[in-house]
Each structure stands twice: as structure tokens, then as C-alpha cells.
Design a protein around this nucleic acid. Sequence first.
DNA 1: CTTTTCTCCTGTATGC
DNA 2: TGCATACAGGAGAAAA
Length: 285
Amino acid sequence: MPELPEVEVVRRGLADHVAGRRIARATITGARVARRHEPGPVDLAARLLGSTVTAARRRGKYLWLELDRADALVIHLGMSGQLLVEPADAPLEKHCHARFEFADGDPQLRFVDQRTFGGLALSPVGPDGIPVVVAHIAPDPFEPAFDQRAVVLAMKRRDSAVKRALLDQSLVSGIGNIYADEALWRAQVHGERLCSSLTKPALSRILEQARQVMTEALGHGGTSFDALYVNVNGASGFFDRSLHVYGREGTPCDRCGAPIRREQFMNRSSYSCPRCQPRPRRHGG
DNA sequence: CTTTTCTCCTGTATGC
DNA sequence: TGCATACAGGAGAAAA
């Protein structure tokens, strides 16, 4: 559920409340949250002791805390991960997997994750400033390193559905199921159209719409459907009120009035307008 | 190499 | 009321 705008909201919260502070104690429980850290959660916690957080950074849906040491603490929220800034005496959440206490006292930072698709890892940082465990992810549309022309060319060469390409983080990062559907509605393209069947300007428009809808969502504090996605203060964004297709099966299209349809694609729900986004005829063309 | 499918997880909603 | 099932879906491993 957290996609680029939601992760960026969390990153800003970390920058405001955690940057510049020294970790006095880390408590990481359960092997799963630290599954990307081979030596395990206890070792991970021990290695963080005494480190000062120098910055909070992001690429796509990946977050990391830059530290005053070689490695960065990489965090992925997965489906349901939350980073919460709270006083030490706040009741412990049922699915709290990590707690960070700082040398200057309250507030502390907690990683809470119901479905445990998220996780923490320590990673060296490459010369480009990107942690090596994040290096396989392409730049997101908000980065200076994002080269839209190159992404369009890479998509054009692909023999797969355009929605699949939008969700492929090695092509362009940060886009998830919600914003992919919203971008495709705005561009008036069905997600099962093959990339290779779309013109370069059409592919370019889709990417533009993706960036645009994520910009707007960020301005609204992100999208939240159930209380799972929240910022570091536990508050939900309200961009869900501005969605045109996602989660709106049967309601009239905001452009033409046709009832929004829901289809299965890649074992997930896809929402689109049957009139504005006609299905491809045969092989996606 | 490219592309697709499977798997991980738990709370909530729905159906019989 | 209870039990079973579907669903939410990011990302990496595995398979095709």
C-alpha cells in the first residue's frame, strides 16, 4: 500500500524527528524483520548502537537512514510497515518489531508491521550515495537521475503489458498498484496494452501522469485506505478522496460516467474505465 | 537474457 | 454463531 508519496511523507517525518540524533539503544525482535541481515536481529541492533542519524533518504519505495558510519539503515515498509515517532511510555503496538531510543531521550522511533512484508537491513553505501541493497532499483520520477526518455525507450522494447512495466521497480521505481491504475486512467490507456504496441509519446504521457498523480497525492499527505498507512505521527493522508478509479468499482467514471470496472491482473485488482480505457483486442495491440 | 508465477504475512470482510 | 475463504499487495526467488 505505501507507494512513493506515502514513503516520502514518512521520510520527511524522519528527517524532522530523527535526523541529528544518536541511537542509544536499539531493540529488534523477530528474525523476519531482519531477514535481509544475515547475522540476525540482535547483531543488527548491536551494530546501530552509538550511531548518529545524519539524514533520511529515499529511492522509490525504499527508505534509508544515513548514519555517521559506513553503512546505512535501509528500511522497506512493505505492505503494512509503519515508522512511528512516540514517547517511550506509549503502549507497545502488537506488531512492533523494532524500537530505537536516542541519547537525547524522547521521542523514540518504532517500526510496526502487521503483515511483515517490510524489513530492516544494514547496507554499505555506493559512490552514488545509494545503498548497495537498493542499487537494483531504478531512479524514481522525482530524482534528478530519472531519465524519462531512457525509460520510454526501455518500455518500448518490452514485450509485456504496460501496467506490468509501471510496477517493475527496475524500470521506474515508486509506482504501485494504486498509482499505476490512476496514471493509466488519466492517460486513457488500458493496463494490458503491450508496451511495444504503444507509441513513445503515449508511453511518455503515461509516465508524466504517474509523476503528476504522485505529486498531487504527496500534496494531500498520501493515500490511506485502512489505518495501516500513517505518517510518523500516526495520521492518515487523504488523497483517497481524489482517486478516480482505484477501489471505485461500479461508480461512474469522473470523465465519461461509465461504471468503473474491476479486473484481475497479475493476481491483483485493476480498476479502469471501460469506455475511456478499452481493452486491447488480441495480443495487447 | 527476458518474462511470468509463486510465496511470504495477518487483519478484515464476506459467504454458507 | 462459527468456520472457511477471499482479499489487500511489494518484492525477490524460482520457474518457464
